[in-house]
Amino acid sequence: MGTQFTLNGQPVAADAPPTALLVNVLRDTLGQTGTHIGCDTSQCGACNVLLDDVPVKSCTLLLAQVANRSVTTIEGLAEGDRLHPMQEAFRQEHGLQCGFCTPGMVMAGIGIANRHGGEVDEETVAHELEGNLCRCTGYVNIVKAIRAGAAAMDGAAREAAE
């Protein structure tokens, strides 16, 4: 009987020590390798996942700390073939090159959209991306993608409310 939590909407019981790092449990125990490990120092943000809809570093959380809570990884964002609006915006705006940092960037972007809404400005996005490192893009298209994704998430939320 492992630690129970909800992963991408499904209940799971992870058979790993309670003090294992969440990122290792996701990747090695549960086979969800979309969440990446980019550094060993809690600085790069490649491992960001949503914990109860808030982006957190899965390399700096223990499995026991997510017991009975809800974790969403990059694998859990799309609905079938339909990408999440933030994923779609990264595709449209070419917000990636090698793609290694992208799962964490998308999660950080969702957090920015949730905190600041659909009209978030460039400066705010840049400031709030300080916990995500990208070694390819120079960030310009990532910032564009997050602004477009935030606007699309806002639009989708309004549509859903109507």
């Binding site: 809690s42 943000g45 982006p55 957190v56 570093k57 950080a108 905190r115 709030e128 916990g131 995500n132």
Partner: peptide, 8 residues
């Protein structure tokens, strides 16, 4: 830190 640090 950064937003992900500040929530924890």
């Amino acid at each position: 830190g950064d937003p992900q640090v500040r929530v924890r």
